[in-house]
Amino acid sequence: MFRRKFRALGYHKTDINLQDEQQWRNLIVWLEDQKIRMYKIEDRKRLRDTSTGNWSKAFSQYLDDLECTVDRSNRKTLCDWLLGVAVRTDYGENVEKYNTSQKVTSSNSDAVDDPFAQLDVNSADFKAGLLSICHLLKIPEHYDPITTLQAVSLLVKDRLSEEAQSAVMEEGEDFDLSNYEVGFETRDEVINNASCILRLLHIQELRDLQTKINEAIVCVQRITANPKTDQRLGKVGR
């Protein structure tokens, strides 16, 4: 639990038992000492003194000082909240470091050469252009321009690209929707039909996914499979 947060903060363990009193107290002290630093060093004495009976009181005071709002009786929630505070503090102090590292990764990709990276999808020009493409391709417009653009891209790829044009269109069979049970009833025929179509499309998508999974399994089988039989082991019973 909280493995990633522990790792991000650089705690020496990635998994602790929250019910273990000593581990729990050590974690709190470490968080305050290394990350949160709510108190001045000399004021941390009470909290650091993990072996005495006063610790719980000190901890409760500490949570008050941090203005903790979550359920204090649940250690899991509390731990998550404290780790969150620590991560926030860490980030707040090193905003630049974390933000630049993000830039480095994105510039590593080919985003720089990508003309679409500079595209402002919310500009009026873009929207007007998109609308006219939609009219041309007879695609209904979605309120999110990116979704509309994706639909345009799909249509172009599947129907209008050179590849799709040269490939022979597979003639589907006519299918009577009334023969298909969608499993629920909306009392509206249009919605019934639409849900039927969505369900069938979903099934097709699942089929494609399953086919890909099967291909992957076959690849792995080339490495792992070694079926054996040994006739000598066989024994016919009564």
Binding site: P227, K228, D230, Q231, L233, G234, K235, V236, G237, R238
Partner: peptide, 16 residues
């Protein structure tokens, strides 16, 4: 089929 799939009470299979 009989050679490949042993049958009966107390039969043992040929897959190690």
């Amino acid at each position: 089929m009989f050679d490949h799939i042993p049958v009966g009470v107390g039969s043992k299979g040929i897959i190690p």
